[in-house]
Design a protein around this nucleic acid. Structure first.
Length: 359
DNA sequence: AAGTCGGGGGC
DNA sequence: GCCCCAGACTT
């Protein structure tokens, strides 16, 4: 015997479906003739990233890697290159690794079970549910940021998001509201409602299909749900980026495969400006002119990085420093792989300031 | 349960 | 400035 009026769930799903049929977005790139692979790629890109930002990345990615096979066969550097600027690069590493697992454990076809999908790197319960419901119309719920916001408001789920009790209750609601038929459309509609009507600020309750069901609306508490996370700016770190130029080439090094900016290419670093000359000699370059550039700030979710670019013109030829993780990159030529956004900006400005300085 | 992992959009 | 976004992973 249900503790809550069992017709509430049915009314919610029915109203949501009718709203989506008339007002919902159905023409996003991954919604037109959806495939499991396309849904997968889009879901990974959309983790912690807004739709408008993802679209051009998705188009480029799908053009270069039309299927699991092409993705699995590609070098990681190329995958990271197409991911540059999106952030959370572990998503790209996991996606690439998972594609290789799909090739040789599942014959190139995505598994069609929750456990099979969740066994792949980068796929958690929500992404697995999205693939199952959106690509194959299987009755599995999802729980992303949009859905959490909608459900928190509609059913006044208190407590900080991310805590065990809140997550359990939200998953329970997502599951209870899921209709037997049309789970994919239902999930799509729930996300679209959260993205375009039940927004974080100033929700458009007058346009909401479940306005009559929503407890936050009834009590005027839309602004207090969901409860804010309470993140601070976090600590601050400092580094110098050594922009080492020798004959029109810039030295780049590949970062370790995991961790911050894992697998991406960045200039050499040192802790203080005073260490620049010594660092140059370590790298086999006799420093000529050293130009200290203004400090900049890059904000991460959990800390802030102050960094100072230091432009060094080398007069000596670069030594035989050419292992796999170290390249002299001719400015203007294709990058060896992925590059974090601040480094991409530095390269762009460097190229603009020293146009075609190649001998 | 808490910390790690990017970058951009919106206000 | 601040907060959050079609989360998942590690410790």
């Amino acid at each position: 015997m249900p503790s809550r009026d069992s017709s509430t769930e049915a009314a919610f799903a029915r109203s949501l479906r009718a709203w989506y049929a008339e007002h919902g977005r159905k023409d996003l790139p991954w919604q037109v003739r959806p495939t499991a692979y396309g849904v997968w790629v889009s879901e990974i890109m959309l983790q912690q990233t807004q739709v408008a930002t993802v679209i051009p990345y998705y188009e480029r990615f799908m053009a270069r890697f039309p299927g699991v096979e092409e993705l699995a066969a590609a070098p990681l550097d190329e995958v990271l290159g197409l991911w540059s600027g999106l952030g959370y690069y572990a998503r790209a590493r996991h996606l690439h690794q998972a594609a290789q697992q799909v090739m040789h454990k599942y014959g190139g076809r995505l598994p069609e079970t929750l456990d099979g999908l969740q066994g792949l790197p980068g796929i958690g319960r929500s992404t697995a549910g999205a693939i199952l419901s959106l690509a194959w119309a299987r009755p599995h719920p999802i729980l992303d940021g949009n859905v959490k916001r909608v459900l928190s408001r509609c059913f006044l789920v208190s407590g900080r998001p991310g805590t065990a009790g809140v997550e359990r209750r939200l998953w329970g609601l997502a599951e209870a509201l899921l209709p037997i038929h049309g789970a994919g459309v239902h999930n799509q509609a729930l996300m679209d409602l959260g993205a375009r009507v039940c927004t974080r600020h100033r929700p458009r309750c007058g346009d909401c299909p479940v306005e009559g069901i929503c407890a936050a609306r009834r009590h005027g508490l839309q602004d207090r749900y969901p409860q804010p996370r309470g993140r601070g700016p976090g600590p601050e770190r400092f580094t110098c980026f050594l922009l080492l130029m020798v004959e029109g080439r810039l030295l780049l090094q590949r970062r370790p495969p995991a961790g911050l900016w894992g697998g991406l290419w960045v200039p050499p670093e040192c802790a203080t400006e005073a260490q620049v000359p010594g660092r140059c000699r370590e790298l086999g370059v006799a420093p000529g002119g050293i130009e200290i550039l203004p400090e900049r700030l890059h904000t991460f979710s959990h800390f802030r990085l102050r960094y100072r670019p230091v432009l060094v013109r080398g007069t000596a030829c670069p030594g035989a420093v050419r292992d796999d993780d170290c390249r002299w990159h001719p400015l203007g030529s294709p990058l060896p792989g992925g590059v974090p956004a601040p480094v991409a900006r530095l390269l762009c400005q460097l190229q603009a300031h020293h146009p075609r300085s190649i001998p």
